[in-house]
């Protein structure tokens, strides 16, 4: 397994947000984590990426225990998060944001070819190279956030709510780009409120409710699961 999360507990002060959550992501897989608002999706991503420390449990990446590593140390090992919402640097241009994605790299030639790759995936970004990120639309910032994460050549790409706040047309577009990134060989763990898109995309999926995993299975199976259809897909 590329990523193994075992029984992690995450606290915000006295409030426990995750109560012993476990999940796994294998090399080359696309795994979704779906759940309603407040289920603990973003907390899970914070714990895995190292932005927040866990109070118990273990996180292993690539066979190595990374539970006690800081976020920047985990990132250098290839565990890369594109944070939710407007996680771009608002005062930097598109190009500077992408450069930040490649902050830990020194291979200038390969970085330049990755710029090309990101601009091919997101033609909108190549039209706005010099634009300051804070002045772009929500969808463009989301694209920039994903593009920036790709600039580090992640072993595992963590996507936190890539569809958040986007119009339905844009959601379609973002998910087809994520599919393309997966086909190019990147392992992905995506956390989503938009269950239909997330389950269609995923090889496997987990269902998160108030800090616990309540269901797991193949994406296609969960799509036809009656209780999931009722709770998350709005179909009786």
């Amino acid at each position: 397994m590329l990523l193994e999360v075992k029984d992690i507990v995450l606290n915000y002060g006295k409030i426990e947000a995750l109560h012993g959550l476990s999940l796994e992501v294998g090399e080359g897989e696309v795994v979704s984590l779906i759940g309603a608002n407040g289920a603990g999706k973003t907390s899970t991503m914070r714990a895995i990426s190292g932005v927040r420390g866990v109070s118990s449990g273990q996180i292993s990446f690539n066979g190595e225990n990374v539970t006690n590593l800081r976020a920047d140390q985990r990132m250098r090992k290839g565990l890369v998060l594109a944070p939710e919402g407007r996680g771009v640097f608002p005062g930097m241009t598109v190009v500077e944001n992408l450069e930040m994605g490649a902050y830990t790299r020194r291979d200038r030639a390969a970085i330049l070819s990755d710029f090309e790759r990101v601009f091919e995936l997101f033609p909108r970004l190549s039209e706005r190279k010099k634009q300051v990120a804070g002045t772009m639309s929500g969808g463009e910032q989301q694209m920039l956030s994903i593009g920036r994460a790709l600039m580090s050549r992640p072993k595992l790409l963590l996507l936190d709510e890539p569809s958040m706040g986007l119009a339905p047309m844009l959601i379609q577009q973002i998910f087809s780009i994520i599919r393309e990134i997966a086909q190019q060989g990147t392992t992905i763990l995506v956390v989503e409120q938009n269950a239909k898109q997330a389950l269609t995309l995923a090889d496997r999926a987990y269902v998160l409710e108030t800090g616990n995993i309540v269901k797991t299975g193949k994406g296609s199976d969960l799509l036809t699961d009656t209780s999931i259809r009722e709770a998350y897909l709005g179909v009786a």
Partner: peptide, 15 residues
């Protein structure tokens, strides 16, 4: 500049 704008996101970039 990244840390000045957003310390958490900066650390996600490996800073």
């Amino acid at each position: 500049r990244a840390v000045a704008q957003d310390p958490d996101t900066a650390s996600l970039m490996g800073v």
